[in-house]
Design a binder for these strands. Structure first.
Lengths: 232, 232
DNA sequence: GCGGCTTCTTGATAATTATCAAACAGCTTT
DNA sequence: AAAGCTGTTTGATAATTATCAAGAAGCCGC
């Protein structure tokens, strides 16, 4: 592990409050590894041996059923994934693969559980993290069940628009195939959904999306904090 | 509160491990109330003032967006709901209504949070409960994104079949309109989905569903523990 | 029993989404 | 520059799901 990585991880909300010696105990057996893109880090059904932290790059959480595949979330630095499986010592429900060249911190599950038992601050942070994740998942389910694919795309664009500083340009950080899977549609349909949004000022140029009529787009999308706002 | 209710609640996994005096402190300001069916207990967007426990009856968690409504879960006794909102002191993401005449225990959120801070066993239980809920939500999302409506119905029936003792008869505990919303389809489509399943030995008689060709149904449904098994 | 009610079902049609096939664009490799 | 990728788009068609309208079945109060 590079010496300048630890402070970054320490600042993660999950670890920020815990006692220094407990932090060290969690981190001592952890290791940080570099992965190229498209490497499968974990597979659904596997035992949850490690808590993973995306330190750099990005990770896609996806799942299979019936021979079909879907994307459930994209994890950006610095954040953990599969915390729930680790805490329950249960099989992963999702697989994970790197999207970009990434550095992943892997902490043995036992250590997470052991320190959780005796560090109340850490326990508190874990509960907050889990609650956020639960709520994000609930929002995703609402998004999927209550909106059409065009609406999901419109809301996704508006969310990115806010996060990227309302400049009028949204840069897609993931390729369109992955975006389609995340939004619960086929790549062909994503392409058509972009066309449908053209009258609402959505101009596509590769991964660069211009939003020229945000009020119109907003009227179509009808964003709702109880479905859209992540991390609350 | 009836004196014989407390032990039942005490046995809830969430409360089982905690110290007696802490349990009393959580419960002292709580109150147990009886509600007729179809009473809206909480509304999405409201502040999370109480942790709710379904002691008797049943509760539907549902949500709106875009003028549409969907059902996210049905809660049976004895179980809590909206724990994540309580812990984060954040607005509810879902509304809740009674489906049957129900008795609901309401515990002020502050008390839950206060005791959580100092009872490590309680904290542990909360983490387990949250993890289960997160994973159930993830399973629901997989179910919704990866399966057709007929497949979702088939898997629902098989799950109920197991839970109701594999007798060949499944009794629907909720009306078909609610089931349709839970499975993410319209009532009309649910009716048609049942017809589609007739060749697989699914015979509908009101709320009584007979499964006469379970192996065939299973072959169609392709149930998967990583999508279906609740509470793991 | 008879309205009156709700729930559920059926039919016809429309909207949404997926599939299959082919073309195209932007890459890299040779 | 040509060939071969991969990712994306477009077109044609099919499958899935929703909507609208009407009918059937069950339930309740009187």
């Amino acid at each position: 592990m590079r010496p300048d990585d630890l402070p970054v991880i320490r600042e993660l909300e999950l670890f920020a409050g815990m006692a220094e010696d407990n932090f060290e105990e969690v981190m001592r057996p952890a290791y940080l590894q570099r992965f190229p893109p498209q490497v499968e880090l974990i597979a659904e059904g596997d035992a949850a041996d490690f808590l993973h932290v995306v330190v750099e790059g990005s990770v896609e959480l996806f799942a299979h059923d019936n021979g079909r595949e879907t994307t459930l979330a994209i994890i950006h630095p610095v954040a953990t994934f599969i915390l729930a499986a680790v805490l329950r010592d249960a099989p992963y429900l999702m697989s994970a693969r790197t999207l970009a060249p990434s550095r992943i911190l892997m902490i043995p599950s036992e250590n997470v559980r052991a320190v959780f038992e005796r560090d109340a601050e850490f326990a508190r942070s874990i509960v907050q993290e889990l609650s956020i994740r639960y709520r994000d998942m609930a929002k995703s389910l609402k998004n999927q069940k209550l909106r059409t694919s065009v609406e999901r795309l419109a809301n996704y664009l508006l969310r990115e628009y806010e996060e990227q500083g309302t400049t009028g340009i949204v840069n897609l950080a993931i390729d369109k195939k992955t975006l389609a899977a995340l939004l619960g549609m086929t790549p062909e349909n994503l392409s058509r959904a972009f066309n449908t949004l053209a009258p609402y000022g959505v101009i596509v140029d590769g991964a660069k999306i211009s939003l020229t009529k945000v009020p119109d787009l907003r009227q179509l999308a009808k964003p709702n904090p109880l479905t859209d706002d992540p991390g609350t």
